[in-house]
């Protein structure tokens, strides 16, 4: 396949708040697919606000493209707010789990050192397997994976999608909701309103 020149492309984190309705993920992903943008990571969960879901999606794109994609997403009826950020604007983490053979893990000898070095922790240990957990940025979870693979081997490995929080003082969703509230208030001159 072609080398999608990484020079102008950057990793963007798209954060989307939506109503909790069926089929929204599909609506969002088709917008990426149509522009041949690959979703690197995806995580979806209820947000702090009741009934509102939050999607965190990372993708490599140039700014012009990501701007257009986010506008298309924002336009969907059930999307409350969509915006994009680069890593500098965000605090973000991914979580990784590593399943290892208990026997080899113990034989390795350097277990404590390794766990301290990577700030990992043991989630589960039984006769057959050990499960380590590490959260961090991609490179960090990847570094542990590499080291384990090269030494005792990894039986299973899984990394979550990114979760992210903006550093800025602006809270776009709550600002937007407050604004909508104000508008609704202004319009409430006897008209019945439901959504």
């Amino acid at each position: 396949m072609e080398d999608r020149s990484m020079t102008t492309k950057k990793l963007y984190t798209v954060i989307i708040f939506s109503e909790n309705t069926v089929g929204l993920l599909n609506q969002i992903t088709i917008i990426f697919t149509r522009r041949q943008l690959n979703i690197e990571t995806l995580s979806v969960s209820p947000s702090a606000l009741p009934g509102i879901h939050k999607f965190t999606i990372t993708t490599f794109a140039d700014e012009d493209m990501i701007d257009k994609v986010v506008k298309q997403i924002d336009k969907r009826v059930d999307i409350l707010k969509a915006y994009y950020n680069t890593d500098e604007d965000l605090v973000f983490q991914e979580i990784a789990l590593y399943k290892l053979s208990t026997e080899l893990f113990i034989k390795m000898g350097t277990v404590e050192e390794l766990i301290r070095k990577y700030n990992a922790r043991i989630l589960e240990m039984n006769e057959t397997c050990v499960v380590l957990e590490k959260s961090g940025h991609y490179e960090e979870t990847q570094a542990l994976f590499r080291e384990l693979s090269e030494t005792i081997g990894v039986l299973q490995f899984i990394r979550s999608g990114r979760v992210a929080i903006t550093k800025s003082r602006v809270e776009r969703l709550s600002d937007m909701l407050a604004e909508m509230e104000r508008k609704l208030e202004r319009r409430r001159n006897g008209n019945p309103i439901n959504g």
Binding site: V77, D78, L80, L177, N191, N194
Partner: peptide, 11 residues
């Protein structure tokens, strides 16, 4: 009948 003329996520 309930007229919908407001949707929180749609401006």
């Amino acid at each position: 009948y309930k007229k919908v003329d407001y949707i929180r996520s749609y401006q």
